[in-house]
Nucleic acid binder design. Structure first.
Lengths: 168, 168
DNA sequence: TCCAAACCCTTGGATGTCCTAGTATATTGC
DNA sequence: GCAATATACTAGGACATCCAAGGGTTTGGA
């Protein structure tokens, strides 16, 4: 999107915060802003790897989730809960995946309100290939050291738990 | 969006990765997924605080950036570079901020290609009020410990630098 | 039994992000 | 000096996310 900046804009923001008497919260502000930016970078990498497969991250996540379900199928509301996104986002993703013949919608056997999302054979194959690509090109080269990875998992796990993501 | 899950879905994903022979990259995958989810949570909190001000995070960031510029004005391309977003995203944000009379577009004095974004008095006031709210309600209660904040700033800073965000 | 409340999914709308052009203005190089 | 290249912004389109509403299905209490 652009060439590297001469200075870290987030560090600058932190200095600005301190300069304006908000020193107390300057560091958390910087950390949070860094998380936002890191997410943006990671998402771009992931989308870049998935593009050749005709997938976006949202669709890939759903595909991967289904591929781990014992039966290869999940109710939409279950998928929404596990992916932690709004139900309408799942509807959107399923619409597109279904058009691509990677999943199929089927009625729930006992609950007429519920719709099951089912992986097709092509969907399962594509999920596997996409996962391999992501593992090789993104997760396997994250750039984070092993210790930092462990630390991130712990710190962000605590944060997510405190935010009400899960009980455990 | 939903009640807490009984188990951490990211930890489950990590176990699934290991179970499928991708143990080498399971941890980075979990860390990256956690970053994505954490960003989602933080963004929701921030947007919640900004909503009463009629602002979104994208618009607030631009407003805050301008409020720190010495002259209260910046060329659009400069803003795009500093915020690390696509130029069209800045166009979009400026359109809306201008409709709200928080900024004004003005021609660059010497370069006819460039457009300056200028903070209005209301824009400056609103930026200040919104910043106070964010500091009190989000950054001041991030939930991250001081040590974790320092660690995040360092680790994510290294990551962003390696990703080519800045030279420094 | 039966109706109200709860739940599930979808549609429509608002935002934001990116990409791909297209237009206008500057700079460069011959 | 002028053409070719580079830069700056914007228009249009594809996607994703959320919220608000609406229609169908279940559940539960009177």
């Amino acid at each position: 999107m652009g060439s590297p900046l001469p200075r870290d804009p987030i560090a600058d923001a932190q200095r600005n915060w301190e300069r304006h008497g908000w020193g107390e919260v300057a560091a958390p502000m910087a950390a949070i802003t860094a998380i936002m930016r890191t997410q943006q970078i990671l998402l771009a990498r992931i989308e870049g790897v998935l593009k050749p497969f005709g997938l976006t991250f949202a669709r890939y996540e759903l595909l991967a989730l289904l591929s781990f379900a014992r039966s290869g199928a999940l109710p939409m509301n279950k998928a929404s809960a596990l992916l932690q996104v709004h139900p309408t986002s799942v509807t959107n993703a399923v619409d597109r995946l279904e058009k691509a013949a990677l999943v199929v919608r089927s009625p729930h056997p006992t609950d007429g309100r519920t719709t099951l999302i089912e992986l097709t054979a092509e969907g399962r194959t594509l999920a596997k290939r996409a996962t391999t690509a992501l593992n090789n090109e993104v997760f396997g080269q994250s750039g984070f050291g092993d210790d930092d990875v462990e630390h991130l998992i712990r710190v962000l796990g605590d944060f997510r738990k405190a935010a009400g993501d899960f009980t455990d």
